[in-house]
Write a protein that binds this DNA or RNA. Sequence first.
DNA 1: TGACATCATGCAATCGATTGCAGAAGATCA
DNA 2: TGATCTTCTGCAATCGATTGCATGATGTCA
Lengths: 343, 343
Amino acid sequence: MTDQSRVPPNLQAVADAAGVHRSTASRALNPATRHLVAGDVAGRIVETARRLGYRRDALAASLRTGRSRLVGVIVPDIANPVFGPILRGIERALAACGYSALLVNAGQGEADQMRLVEELMERRVDGLILATARRNDPVLGACLAAGTPTVLVNRADEGQRASAVVSDDRAGMVLAVRHLASLGHTRIGHLAGPQDLSTGALRRAGFVDAVRELGIGIEDAWVTASAYTREAGEIATSELLARHDVTAIAAANDLLALGAYRACAARGLVCPRDMSIVGHNDMPLVDMVEPPLTTIRISHLRMGEEAARLLVREIEAPDSEPERIVTEPELVLRASTAEPRSL
Amino acid sequence: MTDQSRVPPNLQAVADAAGVHRSTASRALNPATRHLVAGDVAGRIVETARRLGYRRDALAASLRTGRSRLVGVIVPDIANPVFGPILRGIERALAACGYSALLVNAGQGEADQMRLVEELMERRVDGLILATARRNDPVLGACLAAGTPTVLVNRADEGQRASAVVSDDRAGMVLAVRHLASLGHTRIGHLAGPQDLSTGALRRAGFVDAVRELGIGIEDAWVTASAYTREAGEIATSELLARHDVTAIAAANDLLALGAYRACAARGLVCPRDMSIVGHNDMPLVDMVEPPLTTIRISHLRMGEEAARLLVREIEAPDSEPERIVTEPELVLRASTAEPRSL
DNA sequence: TGACATCATGCAATCGATTGCAGAAGATCA
DNA sequence: TGATCTTCTGCAATCGATTGCATGATGTCA
């Protein structure tokens, strides 16, 4: 029968009810310090706390200890399906360590993001996870300058300033191009993502590498999309097709690939008969589009988990060196790629 | 030139540097109480704070004021694409009011969820948004019993115990069935969602209503899927087709509809020629599947925003009555529905 | 029995900001 | 000039838990 009085009991109330000092109650209630209290007394205190419905005030504890067990997570767009699994991974791994995630959606500009970081700092977050990093990100610089443990996820910065968990973007694109080459394609184009993001830059680099390595095609057969959206993909594809005579397209992102579907359809090109297309990310539902999209799978869930674990480690061992965890991407074969028609 | 000393300055430090008492500094730095301080003094304090790089400690302020400006948000699965827009709406509206979202992913069982709520309460959240509500949810009961302002989103409970922001699920399904009827279908089946969720129950009720109202078809031509997944949709569709001779299916959810695509394909039925299918939710990318899915659009973003606004109102006016906001769903016509073949 | 180690508990300072109350200084009016 | 009011600032208690230090109790061994 828990007491339903108006004001919730505090530590003092529990201590009084158990006939001990609040410091003893504090020790008995914290698993890490329970051994300092005699077994029977500890038992009595725990029981009393349960009976009174005592709930420890995490705010007060944080104030005293200086650790909030809160982690700020900044994503560019929560509504974007690729961030769902990342967030779930982060949340799960944080929860396992007793931390909680303070989620914020990044604003448009840099000033906006600075303000967000500032607000998170006011809440005394123990660390930050940024999924928003650009290659040379002043926001990241500010976080590091403030001495807050910070980990990047999905996108890395240019230097090795902070720890990061990313997919091997370069290798992923090599996988895609090799696959197309193995089908017999020699004229392959690339839809590049924004070049101020590590994903955009590295995947393009991977494309150039692969084309050079295989000794095929045209290294400069690429067009940069203005954003990772279907619309931008459609526009960029039109431009690519206008400039180069390609039989296959390796896109830096699934949405760009879907934009390419549209642009091809508009020109009467049938995928994969007239044009092979490879995406990147393996977003939910791309196996259901027509044709089902061949793409590069990235383990977003695991990336989120690793990022959270890395951050917790940095929080608890503040002077550790920045680390970079790179996960291996994987080719997922579906129906949007085939041998070129001329074969 | 902000001071880069090791320990961050506190209010006392600002007060000392400005030659005033900390209480005066507190008042000058808080916009709501600034008018209590003489203009020139306030200006000097603000300037000093800026110069020292002062950052208010939200933890300490919360402890003193009893308000954390933190809201707990519990979703069943962050990785599910429908929750992305809801979360963004919540986050945006909360931020506009100076609140932050503490995001947690619901565990499996009820006990798990209780523990999550307990942890959020320890952090002294000012309120809760639940996207996990079942029709008669004991977790919700616990939140209300604890006196924490709570708002449900997307799914409502059975009674009117708490405020909720939901789509008009019943009307949405009526829209779907009327659309099928208007094409000439008279034998329509329903893939129902889990019946312990308001969405599942109300959409089924809407199906029965519509069938009855139109005087067509068979009121009991429905099968309940075990979960809102493609797999469950596929299994339920097989069962439905085995039991009823229907020419159209109205699904309680887009994923169920995509499961129906599979089940139909497996039986050699071509959609929409042999079978019309309507989804529900208008998830991202369902316009790109083959055939593009006709579905019922729900404004998840707006639902999230409204839920957050409602919660903030309840936090700031604690004795307000539970309110229910119902948004209007909308039919999105694509290519998965057509006249029945026999016409 | 006395010296000393060990264990359990209490004491009180501390984290950093907020706010009701009181009092000082200055303004207003008769 | 004195009474009264207004405006501004300082004082100190408070929110609730944690923890270094001190002290008292108990046990051990010579």
